[in-house]
Structures are given as structure tokens and as C-alpha cells.
């Protein structure tokens, strides 16, 4: 009897929460998707964000993500390799593991502060695409590295031994393990980039402008991005500009859901 009650109560809770949170998440999509048209994707905003589109923010996010991918994916994979394939329990591997857990728990705004002080000011990159991409890369590396190392460690030792037994050296053995874990590495990468794509605060501090009339031409130019654009519109503009924030948010949610769906699809296919 008590079981029946507990079960129904929990079921009710689960269903209610699910319906509500799904509805809440879908709210910006429903509100925003109606603004999707060629103009919205290909034009600069104009008339105080009431006309035009989000073209520069899309391009900015794309540029930023490409740079983050270039910087953080190779480094993340190498870190994963070190943790999984080189890490006999030495002080260095223990230290690296602690480093990664610490880094994943640092709030993103602190990365923003660091990026501001180091990349923008000390290195002299200014508020720019370059500063923002370095800052986001530093945030992304520990996430990708930790996740990649888990996938590499899940590769059966049989494979390492098979490669070694045929005379493969360390590098060749590692490449074989990487090849065996490639779908896992791909999903770690996608998830890491998906997270970076949604990050706002660090970009706000290190690389974003709210309004640009040109696309960035150099790495040291500041950029508009989708998340900072949403923030700017919602907080700094009157109500007749909100449509643009809804549209941008809808686009972001769709992209994120697409990324996560791809990851789930990869996982289901490989298991």
C-alpha cells in the first residue's frame, strides 16, 4: 500500500516536472522560430535591433567555435592519452588528474577574469576573437581530456597487447587505441564544443561587442556571438528588440539539441 502511494507520488512528480521543464525549454523555440527567414540569417541588425538579422553573431560564434576546436581538441585528446596510456601512477599523472578536476570546477566567470588579465591585457590581444577563443579553449581542454581518457581506458587491454605483440611501439599502440575509441572521442569533442558554444560570461569579458557593423577581419578584432547577443538584447534594449533574442535563442537551442542528439545517436549505434 505504502509502495503504491510512494510510486504514484513520485510518478506524478516526475511527469509534472518533465512536462513543465520541457515546456519552459521549448518556450524560446516556439517564440523564436517564427522569425527564421533568409533575412534573419544573412543581415546585420539595424534600427536599434528592431530590424535586420543576426548574421554577424552567427559568423562570430562559428569563428569562435572553429578556433576553440583547433586549440582545444588536440590538446584535450593528448591529455586523455597521457592520463590513460602513459599514466603509470606517477606524481605527474596524479597531479594532472587533480588539475583536471579542479579546472572543471572553476566557475566560468573566473576563467573570464583570467582571460581578461592574461590574454587581453598581459599578452596585449585586447577584447578580441583571439582572447575569447583562448579563454574558452582553456575551459574546454579539461572537459575533453577527462572524457577522452575515460573512453581510452575503456578500450580492452587485449588490443594494446595485440599491437605491442606485433612490434608496435608506444606511439603506434596509442594510435591503435585512439582508433578503437574514435566514436567516444568524437562524442567527447562534440559535447565539449557544445558546452563552449553556450558559454557566455567568459566571452562577455574577453571578446564580445554588442553591436558591430563589420565582420571581424583580424584575430584581434572583437566579435558578436549568439549567446552574448541574446544577453545584450534582453538586458540593454527595449521590448521591440526582444524578437531578435527569441530568434537567436531558438537557433541556439536547436543547435545544442542537434549536437546532443548526434552524440546519443553515436552512442546507441556503437553499443
Amino acid at each position: 500500500m505504502a509502495d503504491r502511494i510512494a510510486s504514484s507520488l513520485l510518478k506524478l512528480l516526475t511527469y509534472i516536472v518533465f512536462v513543465i521543464s520541457t515546456a519552459v525549454i521549448l518556450f524560446p523555440v516556439f517564440k523564436g522560430i517564427r522569425y527564421f527567414n533568409p533575412t534573419f540569417f544573412t543581415e546585420f541588425p539595424s534600427q536599434g535591433m528592431t530590424q535586420g538579422g543576426i548574421f554577424p553573431a552567427i559568423v562570430g560564434s562559428l569563428l569562435l567555435m572553429s578556433l576553440v576546436a583547433v586549440f582545444s581538441v588536440p590538446v584535450g585528446v593528448l591529455i586523455g592519452v597521457f592520463l590513460s596510456e602513459y599514466a603509470k601512477p606517477t606524481w605527474l599523472s596524479a597531479l594532472l588528474r587533480t588539475t583536471i578536476t579542479t579546472m572543471t570546477s572553476i566557475p566560468s566567470i573566473v576563467y573570464g577574469l583570467f582571460g581578461l588579465a592574461f590574454f587581453c591585457i598581459t599578452m596585449g590581444f585586447g577584447t578580441s576573437l583571439l582572447s575569447a577563443s583562448f579563454t574558452l579553449s582553456i575551459m574546454t581542454v579539461p572537459f575533453v581530456g577527462g572524457s577522452v581518457s575515460n573512453f581510452l581506458m575503456a578500450v580492452s587491454n587485449d588490443l594494446r597487447e595485440a599491437a605491442m605483440a606485433i612490434g608496435a611501439d608506444k606511439r603506434e599502440t596509442v594510435f591503435m587505441v585512439i582508433r578503437a575509441a574514435k566514436t567516444g572521442i568524437l562524442s567527447s569533442t562534440l559535447l565539449g564544443l557544445g558546452r563552449a558554444f553556450g558559454e557566455t560570461a567568459p566571452i562577455l569579458v574577453t571578446g564580445a561587442v554588442f553591436y558591430a557593423t563589420n565582420l571581424p577581419r583580424r584575430l584581434t578584432d572583437p566579435i558578436m556571438t549568439l549567446p552574448t547577443h541574446i544577453y545584450a538584447v534582453v538586458t540593454n534594449f527595449p521590448e521591440d528588440a526582444y524578437w531578435m533574442a527569441y530568434g537567436s535563442a531558438a537557433l541556439m537551442v536547436i543547435i545544442i539539441v542537434a549536437i546532443y542528439s548526434i552524440v546519443q545517436w553515436i552512442r546507441r549505434r556503437s553499443s
Partner: peptide
């Protein structure tokens, strides 16, 4: 590495490469 080039091994469970 040189030794293993001249001495092949086959394991208990088949362990082909993912290729």
C-alpha cells in the same frame, strides 16, 4: 620492438584491430 617483430603472438580471445 625488434624482438616482437620476429616473434608473433596470438591471444586467447581473438583481438583483431578495429580496421
Amino acid at each position: 620492438v625488434q624482438l616482437r617483430r620476429r616473434v608473433g603472438m596470438v591471444f586467447q580471445r581473438p583481438n583483431p584491430f578495429p580496421m
